[in-house]
Design a protein around this nucleic acid. Structure first.
Lengths: 267, 267
DNA sequence: ACATCTATGAGGTCAGACCATTAATCTGAG
DNA sequence: CTCAGATTAATGGTCTGACCTCATAGATGT
């Protein structure tokens, strides 16, 4: 209870210590002086290079031992920092020697977003209802924008996912993954990478709960067929450039799925 | 995976890599067998406890040494895993002994989201234009939903941020932070935590570029005044429950800011 | 020229030590 | 008996130095 609260950061100005009796107005106000741990300092050092543009995607980092000695810290601290950056999808490490060996600035934001959302959904920091509401708003926007910008290539992507889901006798997992791919493809059709990464992350963060909830459905095949019918309608609306209709259909589609899987929102 | 002969057969997972060559149809398809590193196994072990609900917010983890011996790995690997989970806002560690000492499941998704976005914006994986477009869509939704759900308490939050920005002679940083707080408060008024965390993360990821761009503006005070006027209009629309108007004003507001800061989109 | 073998350098892992901090516990004076 | 102070123990934080695996570059041999 009461944890997080402000979260969102920003503040940094509000006096955290309430100092109820403000009679002592001109008190020195000793702030507890936060002492950043060593690995955080290493992260900051690397982050600074990234922020200033000195390091960009594809660039190599110094070897761990070298970095450690340059920064005057132990290799263990450097490694902890690198693991953090790796989990954030910012670097990639491989062993060996010569070409391709070492640590490099990378670009894998999607996995990082997925992991964050998945864990915090599991921890119930975000309720499934909230996530679904976000998904509705996000994908409504995607559908509308995609309708205005869709290309031949993007349409082909949509059709490929639809074809998989049209295959008879398909397994639940395969259907669900193709379903995800379909919605991600719509987001990708907007040309906005953040849209598609967020869409994928939200969808993947619900993968396990969705599959679990699906097993409680009476007639899974019928539900899949119904959803697939809506998929086709959405595809048609996007292909026709009818953004308003695509957005509306997308919202109805997501609500259909959510209501057909009551076990989901019970979480 | 990968066997069977499902027509079309594209994986539908990666989405980023197009996996062009499907010409080699019947090739054995040796997948390089990924060998998870030790710290990843530790993460999985902990994540499994979280997914299954065995560990929830507030629960303590075993001490590092104990966890290491239980899992049969070194303490260094455990620590690397813990640092990753910490960066994802999933755990919190403090030293000492007794009450409050040790490692606990925590709930700080906002900071993690901010960090991911900030780094990937700096790496230009997400362009500022994309981020702003996402912000428009997200905050349009927030404004509309907030208009339908706003409470006295939420309105007070909005007014508090407005009051700070109305203070004459305020510094750029303070104005910007209050601005962020205002928009986050709108998102919070929807009651959807994911909305407000995403809003804060997007906004904070642009903090540095925004402040930098602001310094190129001819008359910062005039711009702040113009934005503040729009803030008041948005607040009024939300208070009046006029969702459509609030959404429209919000979109115009963000576009006003973006166009007044040309240095932003140049990035 | 080609195919091997070896050296090198990178990350991955480990064991053990020491430090800093903090709560719980013990101890002794009042 | 009570309470202040010293002691202790548990925990995260850091460092050192070693060893392993792996993949390439370069030397070596045919």
């Amino acid at each position: 209870m009461s944890e997080n609260a402000d979260s969102t950061g920003t503040a940094a100005h509000a006096a955290r210590t309430s100092t109820a009796a403000d009679s002592a107005a001109a008190r020195p106000e000793w702030t507890p002086v936060s002492r950043p741990s060593t690995h955080e300092l290493v992260i900051e050092a690397i982050e600074e290079q990234i922020m200033s543009g000195t390091l960009t995607v594809g660039d190599p980092l110094p070897a761990e031992r070298e970095l450690a000695s340059k920064l005057g810290v132990s290799r263990a601290s450097v490694r902890e920092a690198l693991r953090v950056l790796e989990s954030l999808g910012v670097i990639r490490s491989s062993g060996g020697s010569g070409r391709g060996a070492g640590t490099f600035i990378a670009s894998l934001p999607s996995e990082a977003l997925t992991r964050v959302l998945r864990l915090h959904v599991a921890l119930a920091n975000f309720s499934v209802g909230e996530v679904i509401e976000s998904r509705v708003q996000l994908e409504r926007s995607s559908a509308a924008l995609a309708s205005a910008r869709v290309t031949e290539d993007a349409l082909a992507q949509l059709n490929a996912s639809l074809a998989i889901m049209d295959t008879p006798g398909i397994s639940l997992e395969v259907f669900n993954d193709a379903d995800t791919a379909f919605h991600v493809a719509i987001a990708q059709a907007t040309g906005n990478q953040l849209f598609s990464d967020l869409t994928g992350a939200i969808r993947n963060s619900l993968r396990r709960p969705i599959l679990a909830a699906f097993r409680d459905v009476d007639d899974p095949a019928a539900l899949m067929a119904a959803l697939q019918k809506q998929h086709h309608a959405i595809r048609d609306a996007i292909a026709a450039g009818d953004g308003a209709r695509a957005a509306q259909l997308t919202e109805e589609h997501i609500h259909t799925a959510a209501e057909a899987l009551p076990a989901l929102t019970d979480l």
